[in-house]
Design a protein around this nucleic acid. Structure first.
Length: 561
RNA sequence: GGGGGUAUAGCUCAGCUGGAUAGAGCACCGGCCUUCUAAGCCGACGGUCGCAGGUUCGAAUCCUGCUACUCCCGCCA
């Protein structure tokens, strides 16, 4: 529809230029936008305002000229010049009602598109170290990242979700040493306790499981605890598998699935870390200083150079990160989105710099990052501190157990990633109408309830027949709903392009609001069959779009509440 | 000191990439259940869009400079 109008306006401008009424050196950018207010019509164009300056004409006068030159179109019932010079288009009711037919035909694909054209995109998210259970911050990453995957799939991308975990490096050594200390009955208060050791209770449980010789079955590894408190390597393997399994359970509770778990250790095993170092050295972007090997990331916009190989011979996290992203590039992902906590934002420049230094033809701004700000958790009005090492902890699983999966996911995905998020456990727990997810789900359940009532009354409803009577939908609340429904595909497309799942949540809140208002103002199950059919079709369309939208957020759409 | 992010109603947040009178939800106040689920609806109240400049037909939105809060600035991840 927008394209159609853009074409009409373009034609009008062309004819005005041809008649010499407008100079031919203007390069108009015709923009059609959806109006915010129904009294401004359905669509509006600001062309007269943007052309006012180059043509040195009064915008309203210009708008009149354009309207007069506009070819007729059956879908437009009238045009109007308003405000400073907007051209408002009022579409026929018929064209507005058509969205119901589209929705009932397309069902769960309504809102989908082929923008991605099957191109490969990878979304990496959560990527928590296997050094403890997932906390709320990881939950935000999981909610946002998973929703992004769903949005990209819906818009035609070939999506791969991935979890990268650092099963190598200093943090894991620290973990193994912490477990060994617990095996020997030591605690943080003992002098032999490792510096910065992990103090959480889960380390104690882990040590006990290891000593008992438990078997651990995680997603991608199976380990038997040897029970030897001196074998650090055994402890390390066991601890990683144990916590990997814990995280599996956390994610399972959250209904988040990954196509691939990528192990940092595999980069070492397959020589990719070493190959990356050699490549960087060969490109001449490295130097030795203080016994360490540095990369001149300042050549690529970093504020200081970074160490890649420490003086003790080990690598910093930065180097495997570069090797990992080279690996991603070679797997053919033309688009990669890394969803991480904003505390990692300093890696963005570094990883991109490392990739540029490799000179492999990787685009400068590759990969994309979505950084979410910190999550704080409050209970009884008090902030609950989250610290793995201190041990006081709100885990994702605890939260899901308490609050429920739907509410947790909705809360964590419903805010712009760039804003800080306070997760108020009491509020989320309250089960009251404070909770916006219930408001949306309730709208869905209400439609289902109407459908059940329909059967109880001995009536029937057939979509095909009902679609013949959409012209019955003339009430103000019905028009508002039709406009809102029509908007949905744009919301999905824009949320996917801009990596902003929270806009879907906001849209659903509005759609549910429109629906509840209509529901209260007009009865659906009326005696008049044509009117009833039309309203049932509209109800069903609303139900479908709510179900589609909630699915994009990973939230369920209950049939009864 | 350098960099990222944020600042919009009493509180929590939207604001469709520069449009028309800045919107929701909570909270508070007043109404609506013999009619499809009141987890709902209707109404009222509530704003110098952090401050100061600038860009233009037009700014919460873009630019510059401040201020406050927050995160990062390691040979940790």
């Amino acid at each position: 529809m927008k394209e159609e109008l853009t074409r009409l306006i373009q034609q009008a401008l062309d004819s005005l230029v041809a008649q010499g009424q407008l100079p031919d050196d203007i390069a108009p950018q015709v923009q059609i936008e959806r109006t915010r207010d129904a009294s401004h019509g359905d669509l509006a164009c600001n062309i007269a305002l943007t052309l006012a300056r180059p043509t040195r004409k009064n915008p309203r006068e210009l708008a009149t000229m354009i309207c007069d030159a506009l070819p007729g179109a059956s879908l437009v019932t009238r045009t109007e010049i308003a405000g400073p010079g907007f051209i408002n288009f009022f579409l026929s009711e018929r064209s507005n009602q058509a969205v119901v037919r589209t929705i009932l035909e397309q069902r769960d694909t309504f809102g989908s598109c082929n923008e991605g054209r099957g191109r490969k995109v990878q979304v990496e998210f959560v990527s928590a170290n296997p050094t403890g259970p997932l906390h709320v911050g990881h939950g935000r990453g999981a909610a946002v990242g998973d929703s992004l995957c769903r949005l990209l799939t819906a818009t035609g991308w070939d999506v791969a979700s991935e979890f990268y975990y650092n099963d190598a490096g200093a943090q894991i050594d620290n973990l193994a040493q912490s477990v060994r200390a617990r095996c020997k009955g030591l605690g943080p208060e003992d002098s032999a306790w490792p510096q910065d050791g992990y103090r959480g209770d889960y380390i104690v449980e882990l040590a006990q499981a290891y000593l008992r010789g438990d078997k651990v079955d995680a997603q991608d590894q199976h380990v038997l605890g040897s029970g030897d408190p001196d074998n650090l390597e055994d402890i390390r393997k066991f601890a990683v598998a144990y916590l990997r399994r814990e995280q599996d359970l956390d994610l399972q509770a959250f209904a988040v699935h990954f196509d691939l778990y990528f192990l940092e250790s595999s980069l070492y095993r397959d020589g990719e870390v070493e190959a990356t170092v050699q490549r960087l050295v060969a490109q001449g972007y490295t130097y030795e200083k203080d016994g360490a090997l540095w990369l001149r990331t300042t050549d690529f916009g970093d504020d200081k150079d970074r160490v890649m190989r420490k003086s003790d011979g080990g690598y910093t996290y930065f180097l495997p990160d570069v090797a990992y992203h080279l690996n991603k590039w070679r797997r053919g992902f033309e688009r990669v989105i890394n969803e991480q906590g904003a505390d990692h934002h300093s890696t963005v420049t570094r990883v991109r710099a490392g990739l540029q230094a490799l000179e492999q033809g990787i685009p400068k701004g590759w990969p994309d990052y979505v950084l979410h700000q910190m999550v704080t958790v409050t209970r009884d009005g008090q902030e609950v501190k989250l610290s793995k090492r201190a041990g006081s902890y709100v885990t994702l699983r605890d939260l899901v157990d308490e609050v429920g999966r739907d509410a947790t996911r909705y809360f964590l995905a419903a805010r712009a990633p760039s804003s800080q998020l306070t997760f108020d456990i009491d509020l989320a727990l309250s089960q009251s109408n404070d909770n916006p997810v219930y408001y949306i789900q309730y709208a869905h359940a209400r439609v289902c309830s109407i459908m059940r009532k329909l059967v109880e009354q001995g009536w029937e409803w057939h979509a095909k027949a009902a679609l013949q009577h959409l012209d019955q939908l003339v009430e103000e609340q019905e028009k508002a709903l039709l406009r809102r429904l029509d908007h949905y595909p744009e919301v999905v497309a824009s949320a996917a392009i801009n990596s902003e799942p929270h806009t879907v949540a906001a849209y659903l809140r509005e759609l549910a609001g429109d629906f509840h208002a209509w529901y209260n103002a007009h009865k659906t199950l009326v005696e008049d069959q044509h009117l009833r059919d039309a309203r049932l079709a509209l109800s069903e369309a609303v139900r479908q779009v709510i179900a589609n939208g909630l699915a994009l957020l990973g939230v369920s759409a209950p049939e009864a509440m």
